[in-house]
């Protein structure tokens, strides 16, 4: 099943802010084996924001009208651009935009860009995730 192209360019502001705390920073760094000193100083590992992007994207990805079979989804590409490091105590807002939708040889591709700001409106990071739903035509 092809994805619903009407979702292209739709934007989803996160309904709530995400508070970054030291426990989550440490759980994430432990899971990837990052034991650098900055963790103890309250700074998150470079890919930490994915743990928030996942839940910020759910509202779009789980919309039945989009037609994404989440059980077939694998991660195709991911990127991060950092404006400032993520530190314990900050409250982050995500605006996620569906930037691309396409089908290629029976696989569906969807790219979501998330623009992340702190409570003062400063840009923190921009994330892009491309997800692939494998072989949903079969």
């Amino acid at each position: 099943m092809a994805l619903n192209l009407a979702f292209l360019n739709r934007s989803y502001p996160s309904l709530e802010t995400f508070k970054v705390d030291q426990t989550k920073i440490e759980a994430f760094s432990a899971a990837i084996g990052d034991d650098n000193e900055y963790i103890k100083q309250g700074f998150a590992s470079p890919t930490f924001l994915i743990s928030i992007q996942m839940s910020a994207m759910e509202v779009a990805l789980f919309d039945p009208e989009l037609g994404l079979d989440y059980s077939k989804v694998v991660h195709g590409e991911q990127s991060f651009e950092y404006k400032k490091p993520v530190k314990a105590g900050v409250e982050l807002s995500f605006v996620s935009t569906i930037e691309d939708i396409k089908s290629k040889v029976g696989n569906d591709f969807i790219t979501i860009r998330s623009d992340v700001t702190d409570s003062l409106g400063n840009e923190v990071a921009t994330l892009k995730a491309t997800l692939i739903a494998r072989g949903t035509d079969k």
């Binding site: 000193e37 900055y38 890919t47 590409e77 990127s79 991060f80 950092y82 400032k84 490091p85």
Partner: peptide, 17 residues
């Protein structure tokens, strides 16, 4: 990060799986 030690040194990171 193990090499530079400083988290603010990292400006962007992209991969394809």
């Amino acid at each position: 990060t193990n090499w530079v030690k400083d988290i603010s040194a990292i400006k962007s990171f992209g991969v394809r799986f």
